[in-house]
Design a protein around this nucleic acid. Structure first.
Lengths: 170, 170
DNA sequence: TATTGTTATACTCTATAACTATA
DNA sequence: TATAGTTATAGAGTATAACAATA
């Protein structure tokens, strides 16, 4: 439950007059205490994701791969022939927004589109050799930086974290 | 050059090469196996955050509060007199983007701006009684839905999850 | 000179409607 | 009728530059 930042505040939801006890001149340079928000599960995964994606973005910028592009490219490499609907389902994308992404990857020579054997409408995506080479490096970078990021965690803690997170959204 | 992205191309990153072994007619209706991405820490917090924020958004829509607005309102309630710089630091917002948010909350009668006692430039934000009443309900809703979301976790697991997440981004 | 708040603006991301061609 | 892909477009969210008033 949302609770109070200060010991003597009132009983309900923590929407209270806090911090007005000590000083006549409040320290406006101080960081805000957001502890009462840190108990919220939604707040923490978001902060963790933002923190990691920030590093991800700058480390993979030389490869011209944004996070979603990385995920899509990785999937195409690991599952040749995958189509757009599958990619949209896997990564919570909308079809119209995937189009430009695919066209971009194709124009960069990283993937090719081949009509599916059993359905002329569907196009299967395949990585080119250039795309594969890029992803081999990119996946290594991604793994390294995540390793570094979670270096403070033991193997057991890391496994535990993943298990707990997946319990929430699976 | 039209390449079969070869199964043996990637040995790293836990890339489990599945699926390309069995069928001549690939099942295009099947969900894509993204297990190889699930070892990445950045992927999981993002999915968890998206999943929780989705429910958050629809449950708090009747109160007209988006996730960031909720966080800002909550902070203003818990720390009366907080200024814009503190809010920006706390929630990774940029000043120009906070302006419209604050103006919106003010025009809805949820907060008031009062000049800070020791600095005429700075404006301290204070919740109105209407704003406080709204947040008492909103925080309760938020807590309930998060409780429901993590009901599968024991208290110990929940505490563990938060500790591990905060180790990553703190 | 540095800081607080603000406007204007642009760019990215996400969302909806509608069209085509195939099944 | 339903599905795969596409286009156009609108709306959030996020980013930088520049300015005024004050410290």
């Amino acid at each position: 439950m949302p609770n109070k930042p200060s010991p003597e505040s009132n009983s309900r939801t923590g929407a209270t007059q806090a911090d007005s006890t000590s000083c006549a001149a409040p320290d406006t340079t101080a960081e805000v205490d957001t502890r009462y928000l840190q108990i919220l599960m939604g707040y923490n995964p978001r902060k963790a994701a933002l923190n990691i994606l920030e590093v991800f973005l700058e480390r993979l910028a030389p490869y011209g791969l944004k996070p979603v592009e990385f995920s899509v490219m990785s999937t195409i490499c690991h599952k040749p022939g995958v189509n757009s609907r599958q990619l949209c389902n896997a990564f919570d994308l909308l079809h119209p927004n995937l189009v430009g992404l695919i066209q971009s990857l194709e124009s960069r020579g990283l993937i090719e589109r081949q009509p599916a054997p059993h359905d002329v409408r569907a196009m299967g995506f395949h990585a080119t050799s250039k795309g594969l080479e890029l992803m081999i490096q990119a996946e290594q970078i991604a793994t390294e930086l995540e390793m570094k990021k979670i270096a403070q965690l033991t193997t057991a803690q890391r496994k535990s974290l993943l298990t707990l997170l997946q319990k929430i959204y699976l």
